[in-house]
Design a protein around this nucleic acid. Sequence first.
DNA 1: TCTCGCCCCGTCGGTAGAAG
DNA 2: CTTCTACCGACGGGGCGAGA
Length: 450
Amino acid sequence: MPLGAESKSSGIWNEVVEKCERRLVSWKSQYLSFGGRLTLINSVLDSMPTYMMSIFPIPDGVINRLDAIRRNFLWEGNSDTKKFHLVKWDKLIGSKQKGGLGVRNLKIQNQSLMMKWLWRLASSEHALWKELIKQKYEMEDHWSTKMVTSTYGTSIWRAIRNFWPKLRENCSIKIGNGMKVSFWEDSWLEQGSLKTLFPDIYILNQQQKDIVAEVWSNQGWNLSFRRPLNDWEIQRLVDFFGILEQFKGTSTSQDGLFWNHNCNGNFSVKEAYKKFNSFTHQVTGWPWKLIWKVKIPPKVSCFTWLLAKQAVLTQENLMKRGIHLSPRCFLCGEEAETVNHLFLHCRITNILWSIFINWKDLFWVMPRNIVQALKIWSSFAYISGHKERWKIIPTCIWWSVWKERNLRCFQNKSNSIQKMKLNCLVLFHFWCKQEYMEDLESVMNALGTL
DNA sequence: TCTCGCCCCGTCGGTAGAAG
DNA sequence: CTTCTACCGACGGGGCGAGA
């Protein structure tokens, strides 16, 4: 690790970038599905810069380079030619729950990793590196060093220290024995520091520098004032003690920082990442479980995700991108091929839907779009004997429709409607058998369990 | 060790262009 | 149309050398 190097220069990151590129070369030599590539990106590529990112602030330029590598690999795979990038990169970043693909946001990851040092500084005892940092930069309070102002030397700690306000916002102070916490200045109650809440009383108090342990005794608070309080100040004092009532008393454990965003109060990089990444594209009602938690192959999950984003390359989407082929739907040949038509409203597709709808005598009105279709379909799961199997039906229909459509589009062949129905059922049977390791001898057996 | 000021490099916003 | 990339010019943070 190049500790002495200029941490701002992008040169020290070249090695990381090249490592990623080398890794890609071997992956590119084999055929991988979109889902496979996504898995590789999420599990391997994302973690390659972690080591460097845990110390150095990653320059935006490097993030851009790494993003470009990941982006191109995801969408273009092993092909040499350019391909469509169907969804904007920003929208892939972010958890699957919120409509992304779970690709890591390197900037946020970097922040979270660097905050870990601040957390350790505040909560660890007697670590050698902590003593070193304490000596060099001096502590501002019990929790962090002073701001780094000097301009000479490397700026590693400066960069880390810059995140302190952000970390502090998301932490509270948990009083143990009260030895570290300043009564007036630290904000150890929910509302903030007492000094800012009650400046008038602060001025009158004689223990302005005292720690909590000095002001508190088992009998209660020992506060002494410079002069007797006036009548009009009494009400303020009542409020003041009202707020202090939250305090449950001291204990024998050490005072510590408490991370606000999980139950045990321990900071973790993962939790921090989750917290700080949450602002990106809040999507309410995104049916992520119906896309990612159903028992289907990952590549099909990805396909369903694309469908739900309305981003699959149908004729309509091709036209939007300036490529004009036949605008007609390949299945029925009647209407324009939009995502919603091809997968929901086309009369050929409807034949596939009705296999399952008729099987259960379902009263079904085709929803307007994919997301609604997923949701409404799963709301009927209760009528099925096997809820998990029920939920894979829409994706099963869509996947077989898409395969048929591509057969007609690219190979100029077509299957009869009977054959399509059969293919769809066989696929359904196959997925059931794959995922549940059950003996399902025939397609009819699989259907029978619904 | 510290301050000052210059200047380099990286970032940002805007724009144009390419590509599937 | 959508996304990505390259380019330009403005700008400012901070690295670094000079000087104390």
